[in-house]
Design a protein around this nucleic acid. Structure first.
Lengths: 254, 254
DNA sequence: AACGGCGGTTCGCTACCCCCGAACGAAACG
DNA sequence: CGTTTCGTTCGGGGGTAGCGAACCGCCGTT
């Protein structure tokens, strides 16, 4: 990782801290933000009015909110991954067929980002949504990605990020994790057995090009109350893998 | 408008200028950005590495891109408008029925922003997409909004923004524009007759609550080659208005 | 394989400007 | 009507953002 700590521009950092605060609090006033970030009121005010003049922050009734301009920025960022356009319809179909929640993930800087998510009829609500970043080691999509990584990059990932325990089922042992990835490679799909959230399982498959590049992964999440082992390890993987292949083909020829 | 020009924080402004540049250029290097924005290489580098460390910018193969983190920010911003959730399905349906392009707009700071857009079978591609900001005076959705504004706010809008000519059909005369808004109020829907783009017409209807607040507007865009005046001024408006009413009801009871 | 050019990164200095604290103005509350 | 609270404005000092130059690594070239 580059970016020596010294080379950071403070005012830019606080600007984004403010946006971050606004994101998690819907709306807020100058004083509230200043207190939360331990800066003076005038500083917070300066940042807010600067961002307001650009249009990235909006003031309604005296309180500030993040502007809709980020919608455009986010969509532009996503449009670079032509995976999105080719995967959307297929994900919808998979969600409808299974009735469950389906998501598309791409890797970005040692994390995974859901670039699409769609819910079938019986899908349960989760904490993840479009734009969410998730750890790679405890999700089906993440393991799909890591399993297809060259050895040295995997090593770098494990050194940098590690295998933080999310639930009692999270694989935290390095050797066990390598074994798990080997299994993923052999099966061609990955399982998540309550490794991130108790009560949630998932089946994911990697989306790979002809040149064996992993563009991302697709997965279906199912609550444990609604899944039996046979379906989880037989039918569902087949469906997910089929979708992944369709997406891969569609992505390369577009 | 508050925010005296003096009260702006430069480094924050350039940070967003860099993001803006990246948005319009997919990817770029330090030197390229520095030249484009007339700042030194080291300055550009400082900004980029700062934003990279936060995760808002990503470096791949030595060139920088906007990060997917903005997807989350954008979606959060949109989720405040519960209009989105309640309007999405209805817009899809309208697009499918008409076969044309359909969009949902909300006002934000003297502009309109498309928070959703969906394309029917025969829909043509346009320059607008989710997150686009558009002028209010030369779009069907915008006129719907302006028509429902109290007089003083409309006055303020006209003073601030004006009626810039986009095509030869744009209404630029202030009196003519007031008349147009009066027509919109009486009909309950608005037309766009190639006022923003030559070759494109649109029909829009306001989404209003019981308390007569205008939450936004919905519209259908149709190329002139495929529309006869009867449909444009009879059937289509009815459909759009129906959708607008459905959305309004769904929004208030959710 | 040595060379030259290009672009990204680092370094040190200086002028500038960002941050702070305090004062002001304006609402909302009792 | 006094009081509190919050947003906004103002001036000064310390820090820092920005610059230019030097450094370095990666190309393609000869």
């Amino acid at each position: 990782m580059t970016a020596h700590e010294s080379e950071r521009i403070q005012s830019v950092e606080t600007a984004f801290e403010i946006l971050d605060y606004l994101q998690h609090n819907e709306e807020a006033g100058v004083t509230e933000i200043a207190d939360a970030l331990s800066v003076s009121k005038s500083t917070a005010h300066g940042h807010l009015s600067t961002m307001e003049s650009i249009g990235h922050v909006v003031k309604v009734d005296g309180t500030y909110r993040v502007g809709l301009s980020f919608l455009e920025l986010g969509h532009h960022a996503r449009s670079r991954y032509n995976l999105y356009e080719s995967a959307k319809a297929e994900a919808d179909q998979l969600a409808e067929m299974t009735g469950e929640r389906c998501q598309i993930m791409v890797p970005e800087g040692h994390h995974g980002v859901y670039i699409y998510q769609t819910a079938g009829e019986q899908a349960v609500r989760t904490d993840s949504h479009i734009g969410s970043t998730v750890d790679l080691h405890c999700t089906a999509v993440g393991k799909c990605y890591l399993a297809n990584l060259p050895e040295d990059e995997l090593e770098a990932y494990l050194d940098d990020v590690g295998l933080a325990e999310q639930t009692e089922h999270t694989i935290t042992d390095r050797e066990a994790f390598r074994d798990e990835l080997e299994t993923v490679r052999q099966q061609g799909y990955a399982l998540n057995r309550e490794e991130r959230i108790i009560g949630m399982r998932a089946v994911g498959a990697p989306i790979v090009t002809d040149q064996n590049d992993v563009l991302g992964a697709i997965s279906v999440s199912v609550p444990t109350t609604r899944i039996d082992d046979r379906a989880a390890e037989d039918e569902l993987p087949k469906q997910v893998q089929r979708s992944a292949r369709v997406i891969a083909i569609r992505t390369t020829y577009s």
